[in-house]
Amino acid sequence: MDCRQTREVLSALVDNEIDETTKREAEEHIWRCATCRTEFELEKKTKDLIRTRVKLINIPQELVQNILTQIRTIQDGYESSVKFKTDPNQKVKPWLEVAFSVGVALVVISLSLVLITVYENKMAQKELIAKEVSGILSHFDSIANGFVKPEIISDDPNIITSQVYLKAEFTPWVMQIPNFKMVGASFNARHSNSEIEKCVNLIYRSGDKLIFLHQIPLHRARIHEDVKKRISKGEWIYDSIGDDSFVIWGTGELLCCAVSNLSKEELEQVLKQSW
């Protein structure tokens, strides 16, 4: 075996994931070659270093519980949708039926505006913003798969508006978007410091185009300082992630984030009309 061949099996030798013949050949080379010997020792030490320094972590207690609860909720959802079918007096349809009967995929936004990692400071601002918004994409998926259900859903925008005012802890801004119709709303606690005060998400639809308007009082929003500075100067930060586009801006009191499957340019145009 030469040096090159030896390097190819070095990790396997360290991990003892190697057949006897190859092992013998590699060891023979290492015995003769000081360079490969050093490399072998280093690799072994590196492995040990990682293994001894980085500890396995226990699962947070509440995680298992949350998952079990959610699985049971999904399960109940099936059961109640079966019951809805058989009960003619039932006025409210299960949310999925309503949603899909109008051909809408509803997405609850849960913006990952909070990002606490060691690398935060080093991240370019564009990247930082993109990462903060990225949570939406997975929730898009979750909703399309039926894991999450918006609290309010209706064909009548007025009902949605009154319900939103009733349920929100702050006064959200119910924006009118030309050609778009409000079809639902949801609340979540994720981006606020308090469990009680929740963000509001308004869901708008026009054909297969969707816009989600996420709102939270500015003083409560946990968002990166640099981003906060920019929007408080009046900037609207537009960008896109994959096929989706988004914009973050402030209204003085509220932090708003709109996400859409429109292109960045289309979204900008639509919002300018409604502003």
């Binding site: 972590i57 226990n58 699962i59 947070p60 995680l63 949350n66 997975s138 979750s142 798969n145 894991f147």
Partner: peptide, 29 residues
């Protein structure tokens, strides 16, 4: 298998919140 998955998620995302989200999403899916 949650312990195994959680540790991987934690090391990939670098923090508990994201790791928990990822595990929840995985199990619900």
């Amino acid at each position: 298998h949650m312990q195994f998955l959680y540790n991987f998620a934690y090391r990939m995302t670098g923090n508990e919140e994201d790791a928990k989200d990822l595990i929840q999403e995985t199990y619900l899916k």
